[in-house]
Amino acid sequence: MTPALVACVLLAALPAVFAYAVPVARWVARARGRAAGVFLDDRTALAVGPRVDTVLLDRWGTVTTGQLRVVAVDPVEPDHERNLRWFAGALGHAAEDPVSQAIARLSSRGKLSQVEQHGSRGISGSVDRHPVRLGRPDWLGMAARDDAGVTLGVQVDSRPIGYITVADDVRPHAHEDVARLRADGVEPVLVSEDSERNTRGLAEACGIAQWYADRPADTRGALVDERRRTGHVVAVAGPSADREADLLLTDAADSTRGIRLADLDVGRVATALALTRSAARAATRSRRTGLGVGLLGVVLAATGVLAVPLAIGWAVLGCGLVTATAVGRAAT
């Protein structure tokens, strides 16, 4: 076998050798992901992620912090505000629903007794020996309010003393992170079990054009199926992600399928999908670079420009170039 032929055989085998750049690119993406609270341990997720064009965002924890917050405290009389905060907050400690827990942050617990739950109407009890009721205004005989969010009335010693309004705690950078998704070719869709009015307001605050209200978690499979039937590749981000989705993004510690996140922050969702895309781009670029370097080397060897020692050097240089390409692309 002539030296030129040996060089050609050596360089012709380079594209197969360069295949190792693909796992290198994925390793880099996983390392970057772990640093950002994104765990790309599922190989299927790395393959599906680059094709996702729609992500359903659960209201809880993605564009919101997963909690509610008090957005308005409206006493009947200006000098009632301190009492309104104290009595409502103290009684709020006796309930575990998100609205009551948001109100509970207005004050400490106080001395609670005779606490009684009244279903969806509200809660009553004694705070520092004062009878207090916290709940729907109509239950308390108070005028209805048309505020966005959830507005509860507060009654102390059988007298109404004011209203407290609670709404979603929107993440500070939700609007920017939603824009990141859209710039990356992924359409965000908000899904909520809340009312149409509140869901629309949340979507507008976050820059989301498509949204669905009154959709409990166990009814969302139909949304996934509908999108998939129209040719979309659908990801779902939420605490109880739908198993029919093409890709799951969840914060469940025991999740072995899809992409696991440190939390469901929409910014982390955008980062996760961007990392799968960068890994895919790195793999594609590496394959093309490897093929190009190998073919050019074969041509140079066949024309006698590259002898065996130079062919070996060319191969080493090519491996370094392809590795650098894989690492560089996966890191952007």
Score class of each variant (00 low, 15 high):
residue 151 T to S: 12
residue 25 A to Y: 08
residue 223 L to S: 00
residue 322 V to H: 02
residue 58 D to N: 13
residue 9 V to A: 15
residue 294 G to A: 06
residue 307 A to F: 07
residue 50 P to K: 08
residue 182 R to A: 00
residue 100 S to K: 06
residue 324 A to L: 14
residue 247 L to F: 14
residue 52 V to Y: 12
residue 314 W to V: 00
residue 101 Q to M: 14
residue 57 L to W: 07
residue 250 T to Y: 07
residue 190 L to K: 02
residue 327 V to W: 11
residue 64 T to W: 15
residue 151 T to K: 12
residue 280 A to P: 09
residue 121 R to K: 07
residue 67 Q to W: 15
residue 303 T to W: 12
residue 80 H to T: 00
residue 49 G to V: 02
residue 48 V to E: 04
residue 161 I to Q: 06
residue 114 Q to C: 13
residue 193 E to Y: 09
residue 24 V to W: 12
residue 225 D to Y: 04
residue 165 T to W: 09
residue 221 G to F: 04
residue 95 A to P: 10
residue 84 L to E: 01
residue 60 W to T: 08
residue 293 V to E: 03
residue 13 A to D: 01
residue 247 L to Q: 01
residue 318 G to A: 09
residue 74 D to F: 10
residue 181 L to E: 01
residue 144 A to D: 11
residue 139 W to F: 11
residue 4 A to N: 12
residue 269 V to Q: 09
residue 185 G to Y: 10
residue 219 T to F: 11
residue 140 L to T: 00
residue 143 A to R: 14
residue 226 E to L: 11
residue 64 T to Y: 15
residue 143 A to G: 05
residue 257 R to G: 05
residue 226 E to A: 15
residue 123 I to F: 10
residue 140 L to M: 07
residue 113 S to N: 09
residue 224 V to M: 05
residue 321 L to R: 05
residue 223 L to C: 07
residue 74 D to G: 02
residue 158 S to N: 11
residue 41 D to E: 15
residue 309 P to H: 09
residue 227 R to V: 01
residue 126 S to Y: 09
residue 205 A to R: 15
residue 41 D to Y: 11
residue 187 E to H: 14
residue 130 H to R: 15
residue 52 V to G: 04
residue 107 S to Q: 05
residue 281 R to F: 04
residue 200 R to I: 05
residue 200 R to S: 05
residue 158 S to V: 00
residue 270 A to V: 07
residue 273 L to K: 09
residue 154 V to N: 08
residue 189 V to H: 00
residue 141 G to I: 06
